[in-house]
Simulated assay, not measured.
Amino acid sequence: MNEVLGLVLSLVSGILLGAFFFGGLWWTVRHGLSSRNPGLWFAGSTLLRISAVMAGFYFLLGLPGESWQILLAGLLGFVITRLVATRLAGTGKPDLNHLKRKASHAP
């Protein structure tokens, strides 16, 4: 029973880590492009998000149970969050009409 609780806790932790990572990525793209130094925003955000996720997966190793199973459950939660985030973010079709207008002068 204790191992099942560790796996469930690891899965939920992976989901939360994924929500932090992809939510931070979404926020950075929305606000970083309109800032004065977008490169600094993107580099800082990447370092912060990767550091937080790596630390989170490191702390998952301290949970009771087999460490590879705990990490696999956390990774599964992270991937589930990635799939949900990409589905939510990719709901609209991109407008590519401006590309056709610019390329209309070509032979």
Results as ranks from 00 to 15, higher is better:
residue 1 M to I: 12
residue 2 N to G: 09
residue 4 V to I: 14
residue 4 V to N: 14
residue 5 L to V: 15
residue 5 L to T: 11
residue 6 G to D: 05
residue 6 G to Y: 02
residue 6 G to P: 02
residue 7 L to K: 03
residue 8 V to Y: 14
residue 9 L to T: 05
residue 9 L to C: 12
residue 9 L to P: 01
residue 10 S to T: 01
residue 10 S to K: 02
residue 14 G to M: 00
residue 16 L to W: 13
residue 16 L to R: 05
residue 16 L to P: 10
residue 17 L to M: 07
residue 17 L to V: 07
residue 18 G to W: 03
residue 19 A to M: 10
residue 19 A to H: 06
residue 19 A to C: 07
residue 20 F to R: 12
residue 21 F to K: 04
residue 21 F to L: 01
residue 22 F to C: 00
residue 23 G to K: 10
residue 24 G to K: 01
residue 24 G to I: 01
residue 25 L to I: 11
residue 27 W to H: 11
residue 30 R to M: 07
residue 32 G to I: 02
residue 32 G to E: 03
residue 32 G to P: 03
residue 34 S to N: 15
residue 35 S to D: 15
residue 36 R to M: 11
residue 37 N to R: 15
residue 37 N to K: 14
residue 37 N to L: 11
residue 39 G to F: 08
residue 39 G to C: 07
residue 40 L to S: 13
residue 41 W to F: 14
residue 41 W to E: 12
residue 42 F to E: 05
residue 42 F to S: 07
residue 43 A to L: 14
residue 44 G to T: 09
residue 44 G to S: 07
residue 45 S to D: 08
residue 46 T to Q: 11
residue 47 L to F: 15
residue 47 L to W: 13
residue 49 R to N: 03
residue 49 R to L: 15
residue 50 I to R: 03
residue 54 M to L: 15
residue 55 A to E: 08
residue 57 F to Q: 02
residue 57 F to L: 11
residue 57 F to V: 03
residue 58 Y to Q: 07
residue 59 F to A: 10
residue 60 L to H: 11
residue 61 L to N: 07
residue 63 L to Y: 01
residue 63 L to M: 06
residue 63 L to E: 01
residue 64 P to A: 05
residue 64 P to C: 07
residue 65 G to W: 03
residue 66 E to V: 10
residue 67 S to G: 07
residue 67 S to F: 09
residue 68 W to D: 08
residue 69 Q to I: 09
residue 70 I to M: 00
residue 71 L to V: 09
residue 71 L to S: 08
residue 72 L to T: 13
residue 75 L to W: 12
residue 75 L to Q: 11
residue 78 F to S: 01
residue 79 V to P: 03
residue 79 V to C: 00
residue 80 I to E: 04
residue 83 L to N: 04
residue 83 L to G: 04
residue 84 V to R: 03
residue 84 V to F: 03
residue 85 A to W: 01
residue 86 T to L: 11
residue 87 R to V: 04
residue 90 G to F: 00
residue 90 G to E: 04
residue 90 G to Q: 04
residue 95 D to P: 00
residue 100 K to T: 05
residue 105 H to P: 03
residue 107 P to M: 15
